[in-house]
């Protein structure tokens, strides 16, 4: 561990790593030769090394407090601060609807996920809804658009609900530029304009080729600019900790209107 103790100054004692006593083991020796923080020099009877000791300077292995290096905790011991509802460590879980098995864990979905109303949360199966969808915002509109879709100069810029699809998917489904399409999920369906773009591409997921579509969720039925509501399609489940709903990944199908 390199510290540049003469470079600038770290308040309050020019110490660069808090609890640096923990960089040495119970005999006061560095855990690793390559990363020496501070260590106990028995000959001198004090802590020396690459930092200002964060411990009483002349208290060695014989001292009863030697094994309590976290001096700002009442018990002097280290602790994890982990308030997540699904366990102490974050783990990868897959979305509620998903074409893939979880490669990182035998548990597919976060077990602490919070469900909204049952009726809004039918789960679609990949065999029936083989396309991945996502929703997002645009710079011209804000949230569900109730304000911005009523501002003429903003409504003029994004006046229609649209769904972005790849050239490959358009070809497969016989969809042409400016066609209206129907997007369906286990929860509902909407009609919107197709926006055929090079910016969406099918994914190769292990042995499967999976299409991906995207759409804004700013539209609604009243205002200067109106259009179908993307949240007719999304599942209404919340992250166990932030309660943020899972509107970014779900399954759907697409056909020409």
């Amino acid at each position: 561990m390199s510290n540049f103790l003469n470079w600038s100054f770290a308040w309050p004692a020019n110490r660069r790593n808090l609890y640096n006593r923990a960089s040495a083991d119970l005999n006061g020796k560095p855990w690793s030769k390559d990363r020496i923080g501070i260590y106990w020099d028995a000959a001198q009877g004090k802590w020396v090394g690459n930092d200002v000791p964060d411990f009483v300077k002349d208290r060695g292995p014989d001292d009863p407090a030697f094994n309590s290096p976290f001096i700002m905790q009442t018990d002097g011991k280290g602790a994890l601060f982990a308030m997540m509802n699904e366990g102490p460590f974050p783990e990868h879980y897959e979305p509620f609807e998903n074409p893939m098995d979880n490669s990182f864990s035998s548990i597919q979905l976060n077990p602490a996920v919070q469900f909204g109303e049952k009726a809004m949360n039918a789960q679609g199966d990949f065999s029936k809804y083989p396309i991945i969808a996502t929703t997002y915002r645009l710079s011209e509109h804000w949230q569900s658009g109730v304000m911005t879709r009523n501002v003429p100069w903003l409504a003029e810029l994004v006046n229609n609900m649209f769904v972005e699809i790849s050239e490959e998917l358009a070809k497969e489904k016989g969809i042409k530029e400016k066609d209206k399409i129907i997007v369906s999920s286990a929860r509902g369906e909407i009609e919107a304009y197709a926006m055929i773009t090079k910016r969406f591409k099918p994914y190769k997921l292990k042995d499967k080729t999976v299409h991906h579509i995207g759409m804004p969720w700013h539209f609604g039925y009243k205002g200067i600019a109106t259009g179908a509501t993307a949240n007719r399609l999304t599942p209404h489940i919340g992250d166990p900790n932030s309660h943020i709903p899972e509107y970014k990944a779900f399954l759907c199908d697409v056909r020409r209107a």
Binding site: S139, P152, A155, E156, L157, V158, M195
Partner: peptide, 29 residues
């Protein structure tokens, strides 16, 4: 980055009315 703040600012300063065109098939208004 295509945010179009310039388009709104121009209409705002010059007090220009909207001219809403048909859906273009792209982001272009």
């Amino acid at each position: 980055d295509g945010c179009r703040a310039c388009m709104v600012a121009c209409k705002n300063w010059n007090d220009l009315p909207t001219v809403t065109e048909e859906y273009s098939g792209s982001y272009q208004s």
